[in-house]
């Protein structure tokens, strides 16, 4: 299991961020998206190869209206 945007999500250790993106309807080329894993930025170029550890905290963020 991992924690995806604050909620438990059924991803196994060793799966890549690509799989997480796909579950959100995104791809590695979706514009305006950024990902942090355990409070570290994961550059876009690494999304296809970055493998998740069990219990990883993943934040997938995008543009929202704001001040």
């Amino acid at each position: 299991m991992i924690v995806l945007n604050g909620e438990s999500a059924p991803f196994r250790a060793g799966e890549t961020l690509d799989a997480v993106l796909a579950s959100l309807g995104l791809t590695a080329t979706s514009p305006g998206v950024a990902i942090a894993v355990d409070r570290e930025v994961v550059p876009r170029a690494e999304w296809e190869t970055f493998t998740l550890a069990d219990g990883a905290s993943v934040e997938v963020l995008t543009a929202m209206q704001g001040g």
Binding site: N5, G6, L24, L26, V33, A34, E59, V60, L61, T62, A63, M64, Q65, G66, G67
Partner: peptide, 8 residues
């Protein structure tokens, strides 16, 4: 223009 970053 400003933009914020939030959970998708």
């Amino acid at each position: 223009v400003t933009v914020a970053l939030r959970r998708i």
